[in-house]
Nucleic acid binder design. Structure first.
Length: 572
RNA sequence: CGGGGCGUAGCGCAGCCCGGUAGCGCACUGCGUUCGGGACGCAGGGGUCGGAGGUUCAAAUCCUCUCGCCCCGACCA
């Protein structure tokens, strides 16, 4: 491909709208352009990358025995009403009406549609297992789209759905996808980690997220050094700590804490460590209000709270509710003498003696409160976020934290969808059974963006060979006949050798070409200039290392074949 | 949805407080010189200052409303 035939609008300056590395570089290198918040056009170069990622996914899905199909973007509300998700999915589901006022949505995911297909077309256990996948545009009206392709409202996703006759079969299907995901992300040149995760809106029994490790990641991952445990913080379980405190229980007493509302204010005022304070968080879930007690140095985990309460949504109570229940302004809620609400507490509250709690009265706290004496707790549970230094739930050491980008997610769904939609088959004994399902997603654009996050320097992107838009960037300098002749011969030879070559045939100065080449990030650059040719050489630069090699033009294809061999044999 | 910020030429920005001829850099067009890490000279083109309403002799600037976008929090591939 010649630059002159390609819309490749590189930018010299960082666009104001972009903050993160991948967003900035994808805009600057002319891969994407924004149409609306979270909605992008893939320019020719960007689309090449998307297609590369897709093709790796396609190969590995096919290899794992999944079959490709394509479902519609638009789907009728009836299917979604069957599973209850027409209401449950909320505002994130993009809805519209057709000319007959019938409700439709733009698919954010396709469990309903695929399960509908299954129940219509599959009758017998003999047809199982089945695994279908598609690569398709999804719509989710995200609360906050951001970071370019990282979190869009319209995005390309590979989604796969497995159907098995039983749990064991489903586990095997899950494992196949899990293994395929490992191969996919490895081939995309990513450093990643599979972690235990929450199942969120998709539901199901268990799941793993594939996290690309990057500082700009939106997710926090906890893991142990030994590598036997890794989980999303929102999921990571914490075991109840042992109670080895020998501290004497001191008598409860109220103290005056003028204007001290936050943990920081109270602990500073009383000159105590935040771990000696227990905060009382009032959550509303539907029409009930619950007091959740968490130590001052810990963060409450709403997912865990939702799970304990068996509800799908909790929200911190508003000022009015707090004042009504505690009789005090926000900031002074406490469990002592608190009436009319369930009180649940994190495990750590149980083993901490003589704590500070809110006094349910303005400017008042209690010190030396003890749960077994001064207030009632209905249930102790794991209600907080794990943090670095906490013991691993596998008892294999201490947790560490890192940031990650979720590029893939695999779920064991069980029979959640097959039951609600009556997707059944007959087993060998003629009994009707519900299919046991799994579902498996990969964000295609997000994978590309994650690759940029992990592979760049201050000059631009450094594409991993398998997903690079071009393998070789050919840079002729000047217009002399020898340069032109050598360039076109190299171009032809490299294409013959199966390299994708981008030829910068613009009439630009050397510096402009070099800088654009570094920005665009093809793994190899070949510079053809008169200076080099005078001594019979062209110069090859390896983008990642910056290493420059002088070569006779005839040796270029062979050398590049040697250098890239490892990346060209995908199944190695 | 709550909190913060921004909309002025294709891009990055100044001008706005204190109303008075719309500016800078890059990019773009033409000519010339230059040509291995973002050249230089000369001459050009391009903006209803996000939109609507108001105040005023006069509005990019002040006021009201609105739309869009970015960043921080609750969702997710």
């Amino acid at each position: 491909m010649r630059t002159s035939q390609l819309l490749l609008p590189t930018l010299r300056e960082d666009p104001g709208e972009a903050e993160t590395v991948s967003h900035r570089l994808m805009l600057r290198s002319g891969l994407i352009r924004k149409v609306a918040a979270g909605i992008y056009t893939y320019l020719p170069l960007g689309l090449r990358i998307i297609r590369k990622v897709e093709s790796i996914i396609r190969q590995e899905m096919n290899r794992a025995g999944a079959q490709e199909l394509l479902m519609p973007v638009a789907s009728p509300a009836e299917l979604w009403r069957e599973t209850g998700r027409w209401d449950f999915y909320g505002k994130e589901l993009m809805r519209f009406k057709d000319r007959h006022e019938r409700d439709f949505c733009l698919g954010p995911t396709h469990e309903e549609v695929i399960t509908d297909l299954f129940r219509r077309e599959v009758r017998s256990y003999r047809q199982l297992p089945l695994n279908f996948y598609q690569i398709q545009t999804k719509f989710r009206d995200e609360i906050r789209p951001r970071f370019g392709l990282m979190r869009g409202r319209e995005f390309i996703m590979k989604d796969a759905y497995s159907f098995d006759a039983d749990e064991a079969g489903a586990r095997a299907s899950y494992q196949k996808m899990y293994d395929a995901y490992h191969r996919i992300f490895t081939r995309c040149g990513l450093t990643f980690r599979a972690v235990e995760a929450d199942t969120g809106l998709i539901g199901g029994t268990s799941s793993h997220e594939f996290m690309v490790l990057a500082d700009t990641g939106e997710e926090t991952v906890v893991y142990t050094e030994t590598g036997t445990y890794a989980a999303n913080v929102e999921r990571a379980e914490l075991l109840p700590p042992g109670d080895d405190s020998t501290e004497e229980r001191r008598p409860l007493r109220p103290v005056n804490t003028p204007n001290c509302r936050t943990v920081e204010e109270v602990t500073k005022f009383l000159k105590i460590d935040p771990s000696r304070l227990v905060k009382t968080l009032l959550y509303t879930a539907g029409d009930q209000t619950v007091a959740v007690l968490v130590r001052g140095d810990h963060d409450a985990n709403e997912i865990k709270i939702r799970r304990i309460l068996g509800v799908t949504e909790v929200e911190l109570a508003g000022q009015a509710v707090v004042e009504k229940l505690t009789g005090a302004p926000v900031g002074f809620a406490g469990p002592v003498g608190l009436k009319g609400v369930r009180v649940i507490a994190d495990h750590a509250v149980k083993t901490t003696r003589n704590v500070v709690v809110g006094g349910n009265q303005a400017d008042t706290h209690y010190v030396d409160a003890n749960w077994d004496r001064d207030f009632q707790v209905e249930q102790f549970a794991d209600l907080r976020n794990a943090r670095a230094g906490d013991p691993s739930p596998r008892k294999d050491g201490v947790l560490k934290t890192t940031k990650g980008i979720e590029v893939g997610h695999v779920f064991m769904l069980g029979t959640k969808y097959s039951q609600s939609m009556k997707a059944s088959f007959l087993d060998p004994s003629g009994k009707e059974c519900f299919a046991v399902m799994g579902c498996y997603g990969i964000g295609v654009g997000r994978t590309a963006a994650a690759a940029v996050e992990q592979n760049h320097d201050d000059k631009g992107i450094i594409w991993p060979f398998p997903i690079a838009p071009f393998h070789v960037h050919l840079l002729p300098l000047g217009e002399s006949p020898t340069v032109k002749e050598t360039t076109s011969r190299l171009y032809a030879e490299l294409e013959t050798a199966d390299f994708e070559v981008l030829l910068d045939d613009r009439d630009e100065r050397a510096g402009v070409k070099f800088n654009d080449a570094d920005l665009i990030g093809a793994p190899y650059q070949v510079v053809v200039g008169e200076k080099g040719l005078a001594s019979g050489a062209v110069e090859m630069k390896i983008r990642r290392t910056g290493e420059k090699i002088k070569l006779a033009p005839a040796d270029v294809p062979g050398t590049l074949l040697d250098l890239s061999r490892a990346f060209r044999t995908p199944n190695a």
